[in-house]
Design a protein around this nucleic acid. Structure first.
Length: 464
RNA sequence: GGCCCCAUCGUCUAGUGGCCUAGGACGGCAGAUUCUCAUUCUGUUAACAGCGGUUCAAAUCCGCUUGGGGUCACCA
């Protein structure tokens, strides 16, 4: 049974788009194998906790349509799924590790640790703990009994080669001497990520640990833990980290990173997911646009490349435009209504869709393009004062249009332009700005038809 | 800096020793369509980081160099 998971920390205002990418891969892999996709909340850092973060993360994941099978809000066989509620479990395994001498107590002060690090750095050595407390465990335990704060550290063996297989990167090797005696239980009694992740992945029967490359370096520590506890290892797959255009790790300083931001901008979840799927992976038939179902079918973890791809918003926009154009008008109408929070009347929105569908890249473009349908222009892109005379003639002409249809309006206006000897381009630009306020608009005649004769005449009258 | 990962057009990528005078997509540029803006269509631009090997043959395999990234917390 394939069981995958993502383990977000509720320390941000929402799920990071990079985590959403990892979520997509995890989700797809589970779906592909009729497995389960789990969300576990890793809230072991009590200091950085942000209220409401967990709810927002789950909500966003749902909005993207990545349905999960087990989590804090829906429960599951292996609950609780919030690490802060699993403290006794971690304690139990920490004790076991200590008994097996794979871990030990440490009462070193922060000051000593800091000092140690500085010295090591000056010596150009790896700034790692010197195992000071390991040889004095009796003493340490006595100190603890007296109430001295303590942590539990992983006892990393010396000069041992640690190997593991990564589905995306192949075999990864590292010498244990490069590893620090990682803290497993903090002085506040909470586990660190390293302990919690191993314990939970094992207990929750996670078959594939698919996570970002930033975890690659700490995987050997996790391997050590699996071995010390006598547990079978899951399959590891470290997906690339999404990058800023300057190739650094995708960060909010240089790019919008919250997954809901893209939704708020009017990007469609399917389009974003489709774009994300193309990060480090390509469709076997070189297709660019494909459904989630199709992705699940043809996707394979081992085909993911290990290079960190740059997140390109321009291509995302293009893709979103493609999705909008492929969408049925009725569906697009609903999306726009939702996006604009039902501010605009449904029947008019419905009529405008054929006019703007090919002009939109994001749902938010609708507002820019169509606002004039719902309210009179307040300012004009062009100086219309000098055009009063022409506008007056347009008004008279339009008044004579008996059947208010786009083609009739067009004919009448063409006729007038010719009669007045005004270049059609200039002529219609004047009319366009008079009607919409803007130099850029949907097709004019059709727009005027939707606006209605009365409204059009009124708008033009105000200018003459 | 140590360790680990990586390296094809500006960007996302195809390519798994001969099909590669390196293909596609986005972007850019030029043109066609057009009353604006878009859409659509056509054309065009642009890359195997460098140097050594291995081989009859290398973008593809190996080594070194260079470059990029990640990681070195009682954060995840």
């Amino acid at each position: 049974m394939v069981r995958t998971r993502i383990a977000p920390s509720p320390t941000g205002e929402d799920i990071h788009i990079g985590n959403l990418y990892t979520a997509l891969i995890n989700w797809a892999w589970a779906k592909k194998h009729q497995g389960k996709f789990i969300i576990r909340i890793e809230d072991t850092d009590q200091e950085r906790l942000i209220k409401g973060s967990e709810e927002k993360i789950l909500q966003t994941i749902k909005e993207y349509g990545l349905n999960y099978d087990e989590s804090t809000d829906i429960g599951g066989l292996y609950q609780p799924y919030r690490q802060s509620e699993r403290l006794p479990i971690y304690k139990k395994y920490a004790d076991e590790l200590i008994k097996k001498k794979a871990a030990y107590f440490c009462t070193c002060s922060k000051e000593r640790l800091l000092e140690l690090r500085e010295i090591r750095q000056k010596q150009k050595k790896i700034p790692k703990y010197d195992k000071h407390c390991l040889s004095r465990q009796k003493e340490v335990q006595a100190e603890i009994k007296k109430g001295k704060p303590f942590v539990v550290r992983l006892n990393i063996p010396e000069a041992k080669e640690i190997k593991f297989k990564d589905l995306i990167r192949g075999e990864v090797k590292i010498m244990s001497d490069n590893l620090d005696d990682q803290v497993l239980i903090k002085s506040d009694g909470f586990p660190t990520y390293h302990l919690a992740v191993v314990v939970d992945d094992y207990l929750m029967k996670i078959s594939h640990v698919i996570r970002a490359e930033e975890w690659l370096a700490s995987t050997p520590k996790h391997i050590l833990l699996y071995k010390a506890l006598g547990w079978p290892q899951p399959v590891f797959a470290h997906v690339p980290i999404l990058r800023n255009p300057d190739r650094s790790k995708l960060s909010k300083r240089k790019n919008p990173v919250w997954a809901s931001w893209y939704l708020d901008q009017g990007y469609l979840p399917e389009a974003i997911l489709n774009y994300l799927a193309l990060m480090g992976w390509s469709h076997p038939e070189q297709k660019e646009i494909f459904s989630l179902d199709e992705f699940v079918k043809v996707f394979d973890l081992k085909d993911i490349k290990s290079v960190g791809p740059a997140f390109d918003q321009v291509k995302l926009e293009w893709m979103n435009g493609q999705y909008i154009r492929q969408m049925k008008n009725e569906k697009l109408k609903i999306k726009i209504l939702e996006f604009t929070e039902n501010k605009y009347p449904e029947n008019i929105v419905g009529k405008t869709i054929p006019l703007v569908k090919e002009r939109m890249k994001k749902l938010s473009d609708y507002i820019f393009l169509c606002e004039f349908f719902f309210q009179k222009p307040e300012k004009y892109d062009l100086d219309l004062l000098s055009k009063k005379e022409l506008l007056g003639k347009m008004r008279d002409s339009l008044e004579k249009v008996t059947e208010w249809k786009s083609d009739k309006i067009g004919e009448k206006m063409q006729e007038l332009a010719k009669k007045e000897g005004v270049k059609t381009g200039d002529f219609f630009m004047t009319l366009r700005v008079a009607m919409t306020g803007k130099k850029i608009s949907p097709p004019l005649n059709e727009s005027m038809e939707i606006l209605g004769k009365e409204e059009c005449l009124e708008r033009i009258k105000n200018l003459t």
